[in-house]
Design a protein around this nucleic acid. Structure first.
Lengths: 196, 196
DNA sequence: CCACCTCTGGACCAATCGGTCCAATGCTGT
DNA sequence: ACAGCATTGGACCGATTGGTCCAGAGGTGG
């Protein structure tokens, strides 16, 4: 009764059915959006039958979407962590984030969108989705701001720099998607204010 | 046989059935995305029967989507025009764009997205959609760059400033949507490089 | 007054949607 | 070997999807 987050939490080789579902969902939602992706297609991609989906995610598609967004967000946090931790300055860390993201963008085929926003933006009625994504995004910003402070920026400026960087990343990723051109992302850090 | 773009092009009071469809589509796609919006809901919102849709838009939903994106893009171009034309500097014009957009964001209920990207991003298979939206977005950037040049920026810088401003607008609008807070948009122009 | 056209209204359709349910199939510890 | 459980495979469901079709309403010019 201590930890029931993952069924048995196999330590060595996690036999991935739930995991495959999450990754397939993240990949498909990124490209076609939440409502643009049908369960049939999703299950085919994951190689899992319908019964498995509703076993692992009792609420079906929406549960899976939240899990997929969580997973994608965690990946992003790892990328932020890996980029800023060894960086000498905030600007250098931001540059690394841009380059890593641009590489990711290329690997994914130069057309996919942000997995979290592709999952979130499904209309005002889906309040739970909206709040969930808001929470995840604020997590990215908070984490970036933490690194900014650690790298010497005053608290207020750190917060602003983190928000600004987030804005650039979202907007830049979108333009890269439109043009199918990752160099847009690589140059984003240049637009940060000089004093960082 | 000279101009058949609009059926008779009534000059005085355009009895809007086609127009109502376009506006309803733009509004709904903005909030729920292309595939998230059903024809039934769309027709109810526009107050038009199914027959009318397929009369004005023979290819149905997808035709309507392109028309709605065109209409929304034209609105945006008007906003850009109205903001930059009377502006003394590029920065001032950009500031006006931000304020007008923020006001629009508030009027729309603080949750809707960019109508063009909501229509466009439906997966890699929809190549026509992608190219259409790319064309519209490049139009925004080109128009902004034109004003930037007119207001004194060198050609290369003008182009970069316009792209940069576009990125800020897209990213900023998205963050505003996440937070339901339009002030994010109002402050975007401050992130433009100083020399403009 | 009628022929002609645009436009409307809605019945109807096959396909697909997300979701439910349960029998069979493992794998587990005892 | 067996009980108990998590997991799978898929048949099946009603609702909704986007789309087709056509009868007739409405207006206009001859």
């Amino acid at each position: 009764m201590t930890d029931v987050t993952t069924p048995p939490a196999n330590p060595d080789s996690p036999p991935p059915t739930r995991e495959r579902l999450i990754r397939a969902a993240a990949a498909l939602f990124r490209n076609k959006g939440y409502s643009g992706t049908g369960l049939a297609e999703l299950l085919a991609e994951a190689g899992a039958p319908k019964g498995s989906l509703y076993h692992h995610f009792p609420n079906g598609k929406s549960d899976l979407a939240l899990a997929a967004a969580d997973w994608a967000s965690a990946q992003m946090l790892l990328l932020i962590e890996a980029s800023f931790t060894p960086a000498p300055t905030f600007r250098e860390g931001a540059k690394t984030v841009c380059y890593k993201l641009a590489k990711l963008f290329d690997q994914q085929g130069k057309w996919s969108g942000c997995p979290v926003s592709a999952t979130l933006f499904e209309g005002p009625e889906n309040e739970a989705f909206h709040q969930h994504a808001a929470h995840l995004f604020e997590g990215w910003i908070a984490e970036t701001a933490r690194h900014a402070r650690r790298l010497g920026l005053p608290a207020a400026e750190a917060r602003a720099a983190a928000e600004n960087f987030y804005i650039l990343l979202q907007g830049g990723w979108q333009l890269a998607r439109v043009r199918r051109e990752s160099d847009v992302i690589r140059g984003l850090y240049l637009q940060l204010q000089k004093n960082d």
